[in-house]
Design a protein around this nucleic acid. Sequence first.
DNA 1: AAATCGCATTTCCTATAGGATCTACGCTGC
DNA 2: GCAGCGTAGATCCTATAGGAAATGCGATTT
Lengths: 229, 229
Amino acid sequence: MAIKNQASGGVSRQVLADHVYEALLVALMDGRLEAGTPVSIDGMARELDVSPTPVREALARLEATGMVRRMALRGYRVAPLFSPEELADLMDARLVIEPANAFMACRNADPELAKQLEQAIEDLKAAPRGPSFAEFRAYWEADERFHRLIAEFADNQFLLSAYNALGGQVQRFRFFGGLGVTDADYAIAEHTEILKAFESGDAELARQKMIDHIEGVKQRSQHDSEVRS
Amino acid sequence: MAIKNQASGGVSRQVLADHVYEALLVALMDGRLEAGTPVSIDGMARELDVSPTPVREALARLEATGMVRRMALRGYRVAPLFSPEELADLMDARLVIEPANAFMACRNADPELAKQLEQAIEDLKAAPRGPSFAEFRAYWEADERFHRLIAEFADNQFLLSAYNALGGQVQRFRFFGGLGVTDADYAIAEHTEILKAFESGDAELARQKMIDHIEGVKQRSQHDSEVRS
DNA sequence: AAATCGCATTTCCTATAGGATCTACGCTGC
DNA sequence: GCAGCGTAGATCCTATAGGAAATGCGATTT
């Protein structure tokens, strides 16, 4: 066996398919697997030095996230990048779900949440913003963490599923490639506004500040799309 | 090979894993697989007369829908039924997503949509309402179709993904079991109200009527929960 | 020159086998 | 009686092999 089953001691051990899944996720996010390229099951198995069976299982899971697409008897391909129109649609969808998350999370808020949100903002400030994956990975991670914290504190498993289904945090990540983080200062300011709303306990305000934030992201991403094209 | 690869001629052929997936879906919905029961990979393979490999792949996909849960090295189990609290959460999540769908769909509405919505309502009226799967399947199908039509006409793939992620249409289905359809008359009236809003072209009204409908479903489902317990 | 056919290679898909792990049950010892 | 241990069976997980389909390429035909 190539990858040692490092019985990760914890509550839930990992099997080979889990490692393959994470390896694919990293490869997708850092651009080694570009949009549109086929992902051969056998080929990936050779590359990772495992058998095709766990690769097949990992890809079946990945398909649900939208990162790869499958055509029967023709294999998997990396999902295409988003067009500016699709990116706008993604932001519209976020505008539906995330303000509601913010509203509900604010009603469940406690000092612990505020502390963690503040930490996420601090990490955002400290993160590098370069164009390569290695550079903006930390930035993306802190951004994602901020939004996910709110989604989790909304305390509604279905809204959390919906948030996950957007996959936007991951997909958008791929969009950064080659351009780097361009809106960090705006994002930090808007996150801070959201945090202040949480600290004030005004759920309606938290909702509004989240709307403002995502509207801002939407506009700036549209601008980036034009620059890119 | 047990199940013939009946090269379904169409645009996208089906492989064995697809058949297994659908077989599991039907078994889950009609109650043959009850909540909490383990789903053995090898056992299911024997039952369907296939090898474990496609069963494994089908279960990996099913896990993303929330219908089954997986624990590493311990297999899959049918996800537990919802508690009344979880059901309320589901309705809250629907209240976030579906009114937005209705609003957007109304702005894209055309006579074809109205016609299909009307057909779904007619089918709802005609469907039997008994307690067994065979009886209320047609009812559920028409109900699901109504809501899905709206979600699709919203013309936003991400909102559609979020709607799918709720899995509510499927999960709620399982909840009907043993109780049958109890709120058909209310649901038909509310669906008709939504249709009228679509026909009037008033997107804001469509949003409100969808809110009213899901609020109604939420209240009635809570009542059913109490009856059941 | 363009399109078509046929062959070889690659890849997907499924079955099978065996090692690793978990669960159940009976046994021993206290 | 009850806790701890060990064995047996079932189950999961991974690897391997082979058939089926798809892709690529070159030869042939129109």
